[in-house]
Amino acid sequence: MLTSYVEAIREGILEEMERDPNVFLLGEDIGVYGGAFKVTAGALERFGARRVIDTPISESAIVGAAIGASFMGLRPVAEMQFADFISCAFDQIVNFAAKCRYRWNAPVPIVVRAPCGGGIHGGPFHSQQNEAWFAHTPGLKVVLPATARDAKGLIKAAIRDNDPVIFFEHKALYRKIKEEIPPGDYTVPIGKAAIHRVGRDLTIVTYSAMVHVAAQVAEIVAREGISLEIVDLRTLVPFDEATVLESVRKTSKVIVLHEATMTGGFGGEIVARITEKAFEYLDGPVLRVTAPDTPVPYSPPLEAAFLPDADKLLAKVRWLAAY
């Protein structure tokens, strides 16, 4: 049976609620309505209003309350309706949750779920890919699954993790990706990248929805005799540097691909690590394919021009392969 990305996340959450009575959900419209994207549909019916809390429209209170509940031994899973609205809870996440363990040895085992990304004509306030804000804050873990299998395994791992996890779910993947996933209980370790496709000529380092763009391009260039290896980071923090460097040493050519805008994006960090630690293995410049430095526009031709896609990646792959 095929499981979609959204079903996989839902299954993971419900299984964790079944397994651990300390797990509870809070967020806007997550109970009666089942969440703006129906990720938590059915949770209220199954677990009741005590464990599935519809909150006021108060992102800061949602994350703050999750932190406070975690101090008392609970494991809250908080939903931000859109990753864009996480900015309203920024202080709680970056100034408090991220620093408690370091400052005063108080673990904050919370998960903040953030539906992110473009391609759904959401416009500037409902499309951002803002993981870099959090990757720049020590103390947070940043997780971005690209597949249904990983989405379930990682949400379960995130709920069991004893540090605050920002869990970015790509909205365009919710119902687009369907695949066989292992039955029942399994986790995917946070901090471990996956080789999404094995290749020998050129490495694409990417994550989230862009993994599928890379896979599309890999199929096309395979017919031209270019073998792409795709590294799906799955988590940015902790960053699986070893897997990236191993692939780079093998292929000697790298493109870093992400949907987020370029300047200050996590891609810059990946490029820096590669040039610092595998420079002598490189046979060409380390390139980036990202969105340009603009807000995410609404109108379809503008949004299409904004988002990295197969054509944009293809051009760079051909150029670098011939370098």
């Binding site: 809390i53 406070g68 509940a69 101090f71 609970l74 709680q92």
Partner: peptide, 30 residues
């Protein structure tokens, strides 16, 4: 010191209020 029921303040003080609300919700939950 959580073992003494003391939660360290958040420097921008009002930020403690949602956190305290969540701790209170948790006590009720338990």
């Amino acid at each position: 010191d959580l073992s003494k029921g003391l939660v360290a303040i958040i420097s921008a003080m009002a930020a403690s209020v949602p956190v305290a609300a969540g701790a209170a919700m948790a006590l009720k939950y338990q």
